[in-house]
Amino acid sequence: MQLDDEDVRAILQLLDAATFDELQIETDRFNLTLRRTGAAWTRESRTLGVPREWVPPPGGGTVEAGAGAATPQAIPTGTATEAATATPTAVVTRTSERDRLVAVQTPLPGTFYRSPRPGAPPFVEVGTRVEHDTVVAIVETMKLMNSVYAGSSGRIAEICCADATLVAQQAILMRIDPEVP
C-alpha cells in the first residue's frame, strides 16, 4: 500500500477532530509519522525496502557493453576529465621532512582541479613560490568552483592528489615548505 498527499490530507481531517497527537503507519515499504504540535501537523517519512535490480528475463536478450555493470572506470565524454591523463602524479617526500611542511587541505569534498581550465597550465607546480592568498587549485562541489588558497607563504613541496580526482572532506591536497625563501 502507498499513501499519497491526498490520502494524508483526508487522514489529517479526521485526526484534527480527534484527540490523537500522533499517528504512525509502518508497512514493509514505508514508515510515515504524522505529528501534531499545537495547531500544526508535520509529516516524517522513511522509505523502506531494498531497491530491485533489473534482471534480464530468462532466455532474454544480451546485456550490451557499458550498461548496468558496476565499472569504476569513467567513460570520457569530452569533459574536464580528459586533462587527467596529462598531469603528473603525487610526489612523495621523506617522513622526517614532513613534520615541518604545511598541509593545504580542501575546503570541501569534491573534484580537485590543478588548472583554471582544461589545457591551461596548472596554478602551481612543485617548487612554485606562493604567498598566503595564492590560488593553488580549484575544487568543484555541486557544480560550484571553489578556489583553494595556499594559506601560507613558501614553496610547493608536494602535490598529493591527482588532477581531476575526487577528494574527501579535509583531504590534504598539497604541502608547502614554509621555510624555503
Partner: peptide, 29 residues
C-alpha cells in the same frame, strides 16, 4: 520507489548521469 534500478556508472555525473552512451545502453538493456 522505482520498480527496478539499473546502474549506469560511478558517482561523478560525467561518468553516469551525463554519459549519453551509458544512458541509452541502459534503456536498451
Amino acid at each position: 520507489r522505482a520498480d527496478r534500478i539499473v546502474e549506469i556508472g560511478p558517482a561523478p555525473a560525467h561518468a553516469s548521469y551525463l554519459n549519453v552512451a551509458a544512458v541509452v545502453n541502459a534503456a536498451r538493456t
